[in-house]
């Protein structure tokens, strides 16, 4: 395998493109959030298709609008949102490895569905890894996202095989609307009526969302008091005093004072991340994970 140093030039950064990996663990003691892939399943698929480790850093693209080029040949694959990847006159789909040659411009069309697209490379990102992760999270990293004209140093390792035109068929798991959840620590404080509503009605995503959390539209009227600040995680569903549900996502803070009524499974967090504002989901309550 040849190894050489080169760079990615971000010509157009789009609304929110960053480097992400599995995230930071072990620094919650100092209030440092996990960060990491919004949709860890798609990032894992992209990485595994290239023979990378599932948690290797990827380029995470929100909503499209990205244009980039590289100065060394590299094998790439995209996964996640449904998008066309244009290189010169050619169009590649997700799950279809392709070679990007020096000088060629890669552009992404607006996504047909989904929100987050991942690019895995046969290359390593030379970006700082404060607290053992390359995931962008300001102010732990110096920026939260790329801007037009940014450059990233890469260590390219062009493998000694070239991709064919094959595309790996993976069932589009992102179409599922049902999110598997466990009861949160404060779930049992809700009225039976609210518990039923929560687990049988559908909830739509509002446009109030970012890497920290996603607010849902339909309120749940309740009279639960706030709680003393307690641990929260990506996938924790908080109930605000006004009845709004907030699903905490990857950049969420590590403690919170709102009742924690549900906890999404890892798979459900990735699934929810790919839903757009206006789309709706249901919560499918799983039995307690283990006896106590």
């Amino acid at each position: 395998m040849r190894l050489c140093k080169g760079e990615i030039s971000i010509i157009k950064a789009g609304p929110f493109t960053s480097v992400q990996d599995a995230g930071r663990f072990g620094y919650a003691d100092f209030g440092i959030p996990t960060a990491g892939f919004m949709d860890a399943i798609s990032a894992g698929i992209a990485n595994l298709l290239l023979g990378n480790q599932a948690c290797a850093p990827c380029l995470e693209v929100f909503a499209g609008g990205l244009a980039l080029k590289i100065d060394q040949p590299c094998l790439l694959v995209a996964a996640g949102a449904d998008a066309d990847i244009q290189v010169g006159g050619q169009v590649f789909r997700t799950h279809q490895p392709f070679t990007l040659k020096p000088g060629e411009v890669l552009k992404i069309s607006p996504f047909r569905s989904g929100q987050w697209l991942y690019f895995a490379f046969t290359a390593k990102f030379e970006v700082p890894a404060p607290f053992e992760s390359k995931s962008f999270y300001f102010p732990i990293t110096s920026k939260s996202r790329f801007h037009d004209g940014d450059k990233v140093v890469m260590h390219f390792s062009m493998p000694e095989y070239s991709p064919t035109n094959c595309r790996v068929g993976i069932r589009d798991w992102k179409l599922f609307r049902s999110l598997e959840v466990f009861a949160g620590p404060e779930f049992h404080l809700l009225s039976v009526y609210n518990q039923e509503t929560l687990t049988h009605k559908s909830f739509s995503l509002s446009s109030m969302q970012n890497r920290l959390g996603i607010q849902l539209n339909e309120p749940l009227e309740h009279n639960l008091p706030e709680i003393l600040s307690s641990p929260v995680f990506p996938g924790t569903v908080q109930l605000t005093p006004s009845g709004k549900l907030i699903v905490l996502m990857r950049d969420a803070q590590i403690t919170g004072g709102y009742p924690r009524i549900l906890q999404l499974t890892e798979t459900s967090i990735s699934l929810l991340a790919q839903k757009r504002p206006g789309e709706s989901v249901t919560f499918s309550l799983l039995p307690p994970p283990k006896p106590t």
Partner: peptide, 25 residues
């Protein structure tokens, strides 16, 4: 363990996804 998160009167143990032996309470 991946980490432990603390609140005023609670702590949450975050276990790694893949561990050889199941955790016994």
């Amino acid at each position: 363990l991946r980490e432990i998160r603390m609140g005023y009167h609670r702590m949450t143990l975050h276990f790694k996804e893949f561990i050889s032996e199941p955790i016994d309470l």
